[in-house]
């Protein structure tokens, strides 16, 4: 009754391996091979960074973190100012991106009229899709001159008692880099916060509403406590992004060594910009190794922030996805 062609039964038996056919074994094999390849790549990246930084690590040890400059003449390399610049710009970015980002998320979820909610969220996500070199272009040609000419003097005039806003005005400065970073990490915080806020159980909201709470009270007492962990995860993700951002920052941060001071209007540089600027100058040997070590530092820092962020977000039962990441 079976419609098999003569002989296929025997061939079929030949291709069997227990309960699996040869094709299954091959397919599984290929899949696992490729996955191993991916794992190998990740391991390879880490290993290559570590092994190539070894000369610099051995030569400088922890002084690498405090040495003030990349000095090929005297063969002394250090990323002190780079670390400073990285921390300052990222902190600045996060500080301002949190209220704006979370505020936007709150608006989109709770206050925004239904029909425009999705398009508006899409527009905010578009911010994340813009390549960083275009942010750099914009920052370099438009934002930096404007900040130098208008914003920085204004800030010094009215808030000059703060050490941040003292000192000479530079367009290409830590301040400008910070501002650009705010814009770049904004969509990430917004999208993660929005996702997290959307998962607040409606029962929580309804319970409060039934008690006569205003919308803000509902947010403050039901939504935010519930979402806190997830939002924090999103913030840390954004921090990781800011710490590793290369192109936009390199184009606006000035790339000049300034003495380390709280003045934001000074030029500076970041770990990522050091790599971008110095790799081509790097002579084989210690210089090369120092550049790689800078890369290793960026790798480790972003790895740690990423892991912490993912753990936090996983705890809320989320996988973050979409354009923003």
């Amino acid at each position: 009754m079976q419609q098999s062609l003569p002989g296929t039964r025997n061939v079929a038996r030949l291709l069997r391996w227990g309960n699996r056919r040869l094709s299954d074994t091959i397919f599984r094999g290929i899949t696992i091979l490729l996955v191993l390849f991916v794992v190998a790549i990740v391991a390879g990246v880490a290993w290559i960074l570590i092994s190539n930084s070894m000369p610099a690590i051995q030569k400088f040890g922890f002084r690498f973190l405090t040495n003030q400059a990349f000095d090929p003449v005297h063969n002394v390399f250090g990323v002190g100012p780079a670390i400073f610049g990285t921390l300052v710009t990222s902190a600045f970015a996060i500080l301002f991106a949190i209220p704006i980002g979370v505020g936007t998320a709150i608006f989109l979820v709770d206050f925004c009229p239904r029909p425009i909610q999705s398009p508006l969220a899409f527009i905010v996500e578009l911010l994340a899709a813009v390549p960083s070199v275009i942010y750099g272009l914009f920052g370099f040609l438009v934002l930096a001159p404007w900040l130098q000419g208008s914003a920085e003097p204004w800030l010094q005039k009215y808030l000059g008692f703060l050490p941040f806003f003292q000192g000479a005005f530079h367009g290409l400065s830590l301040f400008t880099a910070g501002v650009i970073l705010v814009i770049m990490v904004l969509p990430l915080i917004t999208s993660v916060s929005r996702e997290v806020i959307l998962t607040t159980p409606t029962t929580q909201r309804e319970a409060l509403l039934a008690l006569g709470a205003t919308r803000w009270e509902v947010i403050r007492h039901a939504v935010l406590p519930y979402s806190r962990i997830g939002i924090t995860g999103g913030v840390i993700l954004a921090l990781g992004r800011a710490l590793g951002e290369t192109m936009a920052v390199t184009m606006v941060v000035g790339n000049q060594a300034s003495p380390i001071s709280p003045g934001l209007f000074n030029s500076g540089y970041t770990l990522a910009s050091v790599i971008a600027n110095q790799f081509n100058e790097a002579t084989p040997g210690l210089f090369f190794s120092a550049v790689i070590e800078a890369g290793l530092l960026v790798f480790i820092i972003t790895l740690i922030t990423n892991i912490i962020a993912r753990v936090l977000i996983y705890r809320m039962g989320h996988r973050v996805g979409g354009l923003a990441t």
Partner: peptide
Amino acid sequence: SLDVVALRQ
């Protein structure tokens, strides 16, 4: 040890 693929045919 039965070939379930053939069985299901």
